[in-house]
Design a protein around this nucleic acid. Structure first.
Lengths: 183, 183
DNA sequence: GGGCGATGTGCGTTATAACGCACACTCTAC
DNA sequence: GTAGAGTGTGCGTTATAACGCACATCGCCC
C-alpha cells in the first residue's frame, strides 16, 4: 500500500537520459538543485509534491506518470482474503485501489436469496459489473435489471444501488470501481 | 509554472468532509499524523509524494485528482486498436476505452495450442489479467508464468509479452488495459 | 603533458516536513 | 451544572528535504 517512490527516480533518470540532459541542465530547466535531482534519482530522497511538479514540468511529463506501477504483481486465488458481509455477499479483492490508476476490482459471489444494498459512492464514481456465472439483478435508476452470464454493465455509482440474487444458483461477478479524476 | 499546492489541501478537506471523517479518523486510515493533515489542509505545509500517496490511498482518490488544477483537461493516449492476430485468440470487448476512465476491458478466450504475442504498449500502460477458467501462461520479464483460474496479475505492458495455452481445455480470461495520461 | 569544461557525488548547512502531545473549544449525556 | 469524548490547532522536537559548494573523474583541445 506504499508508493514505490524509487520508481520516481528511475523514471526521472530514464526520461532525462532520453533527452540527453545532464543533471546541471535539468536543474536549470526544472528549477530544482542538481544535488536534489541526483538524490531523487538514486532513491536517497523523496521529493515534496511541489518539487516533483517542477521536475515533471521541466521534463514535460504528467506528474502521475512517475507513479504508474512497474513490474509484475501476481495474486493467487487462495491467497486472496474473502470477506463475507452481513448480506451474505462474498467479496474477494482482485486489485486493490491504486492512486496512480484510480480503480479497484473485486470478485463477488452472490448466493441464493442475497440482497446487498450499497449507499451512493462519491460523486463521479463509476462502477462496472461483469457477470461470470449465474444470474443476478442490479437495482439502478429506480428499477431492477436482470443480468446474465456474459453481461457487462457500466453505471454511475453515485446513487443508491443494490445487487440481489433470487435464483437457485449462486451468481459470480466482477466489480470494478473507478474513482473520478475530475469533479 | 508552480503547482497550485493549496488546491491539494482544499480538495483533501472537501473529500474528507464528504465522507464525514474527522482529522483523527483520517489520520488513522491514511497513516499520516493528524497535525500534518491539518497543516496540509490549511496550506501550511507541502507533503512529500510519499505522504500524499498515503492520503490518496486512504481517501480513495486518484493521485491525479490532487495534482491537476480544476478545470484543466487531461489527455490520454488513445487505446491502440486490438490486433486481430492469426493466433486463434478470441477477443470480445467488455468495456470500450473511455478517456475519462482511462481503461478498456476485454474477454479473451485462448483455445488449446494458442500463442499470441503482443508488441510493447506505450510507456506507462498497465495490464491486468484475471483467469476465469482453465490455465494459461503469460510471458513477462523474460520468462513464462503459469496462471490458473482465479489468479490475478498486473504487469507493465510497455514491454514485450505473450499469452499461450498448452492445455487441452480453452482458457478464458479478462484483460483490463489501463492507459496513462499523455506524454 | 596541462588546462578547461562537463559530469555526478558527497558534505555541511538551512529550511521545512512530519510527528507526538497539550490545549481550548464544542457537544452530548447524566 | 460536570464529566467525558470528539475536534482542530499550535508548539516544540526530530528527521529529512533541498540547497550551494567542493571535489574527483573524465573527455577534449592545445
Amino acid at each position: 500500500m506504499d508508493a514505490d517512490v524509487s520508481a520516481i527516480g528511475r523514471y526521472m533518470k530514464k526520461r532525462r537520459a532520453e533527452r540527453g540532459w545532464s543533471l546541471s541542465r535539468t536543474a536549470d530547466i526544472c528549477g530544482v538543485s542538481k544535488a536534489m535531482l541526483g538524490q531523487i534519482e538514486r532513491g536517497e530522497s523523496t521529493p515534496t509534491i511541489s518539487t516533483l511538479w517542477k521536475i515533471a514540468s521541466g521534463l514535460q511529463v504528467p506528474l502521475s506518470r512517475f507513479l504508474v506501477p512497474e513490474g509484475v504483481a501476481l495474486q493467487r486465488l487462495n491467497a486472496m482474503p474473502r470477506h463475507h458481509d452481513a448480506s451474505g455477499m462474498i467479496v474477494t479483492p482482485l486489485f486493490a485501489f491504486d492512486p496512480a490508476l484510480g480503480f479497484e476490482m473485486f470478485a463477488i459471489e452472490l448466493p441464493q436469496d442475497t440482497l446487498s444494498e450499497s449507499a451512493p459512492h462519491a460523486s463521479g464514481v463509476v462502477e462496472h459489473l461483469v457477470v461470470l456465472e449465474g444470474r443476478m439483478e442490479l437495482f439502478i435508476d429506480g428499477g431492477w435489471q436482470t443480468l446474465s452470464a456474459g453481461d457487462a454493465i457500466r453505471f454511475s455509482a453515485d446513487q443508491p444501488h443494490a445487487y440481489r440474487n433470487r435464483h437457485p444458483e449462486p451468481a459470480r461477478i466482477h466489480d470494478l470501481i473507478h474513482y473520478p479524476f475530475g469533479d
